[in-house]
Design a protein around this nucleic acid. Structure first.
Lengths: 244, 244
DNA sequence: CGGAATGTTGATTATATTCAACTGTTGTGG
DNA sequence: CCACAACAGTTGAATATAATCAACATTCCG
């Protein structure tokens, strides 16, 4: 992991950080605000702020209060739970136009996870108060909020289901197959892992050593080829088959 | 496990099953409807129905559509995820005045879990349509819905955190300590497990054999005494200590 | 280039599952 | 009320799975 122990202060709000139009654009793009009127978006945006963070920065700490819902304009973040020893379990990766913290912020509860930025990123911080207002006044936003929370819940259950039902080898095979999804053909295809193998391992709830061994297993069986973060799927049918 | 493979049909709606006042009473007691006006409760209740189920009955099946949000008037149910082999992981127990299925019902998604009744129970089935209506028209209900979903989400994260952070022995110790919570004194106290040890094991994500061994360990260390489902805590401080 | 971060590999160990046999408990129908 | 069957719990031995420890190789950036 990258070296950080303190929550990073917001770096200088350079560029268009204070441009209200810019913040509105970021916020209007969030699924939470899909279909929400410009006036509502403007109201929320006027309370929000932009932060830039360097790769590795800690942007939220478990058990501390969040300053608001955090949305990613660009970059990449991970939500992690600390484990015994020094390592961690990744709950979710958060990419552009995604957000997190809705549940904790709306309930006024402390953040249940640590959040790190995996690449230089721009975030929008949306405080609780205008969100609570909108929730009551704007039906569309209320719907979006319910949908976001419900999807989060079903997503977590699906995760738990996957790890209860399938071995880590099977989950890895299923994941690689899902990355190949866009390539509709059954021909060999090269895919790029979106994050480091170590981070992926943490996402599957295993160690980087175990992940390394599982990948080697697939390589030895001629199911994949590996070159750094690029993986070539050689036998997609058999890979999907072992995901069972 | 009890022997059932089909979703149980509703048993005869005997007693006060069709009494509208009765259904309203059940529904008004749910956290989801706390503070919601009588008119709204009556509207939803008029679409709801009551079902009685015998111990062991399957009341919802994974991947099938739910007929609505399911609330327990009395009795006890468990939400489970099937695992490899025949056994299962318990996500949650649902007691009187609790409900489940909000996320799947509101999103129109299939039920993510199997649900069984652990004791003879009375359920209320609340279909999606009036819930969606209320969500948009009734601010209090909307708030309750958001709160319920958000709490469910944080609860799941807390669960995942617990199993990532602590060994099953530690979780068990913490759980026993939490059952003793009401008895404020540090004196020995006898507590009753709310469900079978097998079901508790599944709740902790371990097998009944492992649970049995963990409890024996605690017994051998003179931390507890055991008599069926009654457990006497002999050294609460040390028990809490090992929960770390 | 140099140093941090990332990834690999082998040996060992921890933790819990699986399998199997057995005992105890409970609820039900005869 | 008893006998029986289904369920619940216990225990031991063998096994599976992945974590941990330690050392090293590789890649990525500044």
């Amino acid at each position: 992991m990258l070296q950080h122990t303190e929550v990073a202060g917001q770096s200088s709000t350079h560029g268009r950080g204070r441009d209200p139009h810019f913040i509105e654009g970021v916020i209007a793009n969030l699924p939470l605000f899909r279909g929400v009127g410009r006036a509502s978006v403007a109201l929320v945006s006027s309370c929000a702020r932009i932060e830039h963070h360097r790769r590795g920065a800690l942007i939220a700490r478990q058990a501390e209060m969040l300053p608001g819902v955090i949305a990613i304009a660009f970059g990449l973040a991970k939500l992690v739970l600390p484990r015994r020893r020094g390592d961690e379990k990744v709950l979710r990766f958060i990419g552009p136009n995604e957000s997190f913290g809705e549940a904790a912020v709306l309930l006024g509860r402390p953040c249940p996870v640590d959040a790190f930025v995996l690449a230089d990123s721009m975030l929008a911080i949306i405080p609780a108060q205008p969100l609570r207002q909108l929730q009551e006044r704007d039906t569309v936003f209320g719907n979006n909020l319910v949908r976001t929370l419900a999807e989060g819940l079903l997503g977590l259950v699906a995760d738990i289901d996957a790890s209860a039902r399938r071995s880590s080898a099977q989950r890895l095979a299923a994941y690689l197959d899902s990355l190949a999804e866009p390539h509709s053909g059954s021909a060999d295809c090269a895919i790029q892992l979106p994050v480091t193998k170590t981070a992926l391992a943490a996402r599957f709830g295993i160690t980087k050593e175990t992940m390394s061994r599982l990948l080697r297993e697939l390589k030895d069986q001629r199911l994949i080829m590996m070159n750094g973060r690029t993986i070539t799927i050689l036998d997609r049918a058999r890979l999907a088959g072992m995901a069972a």
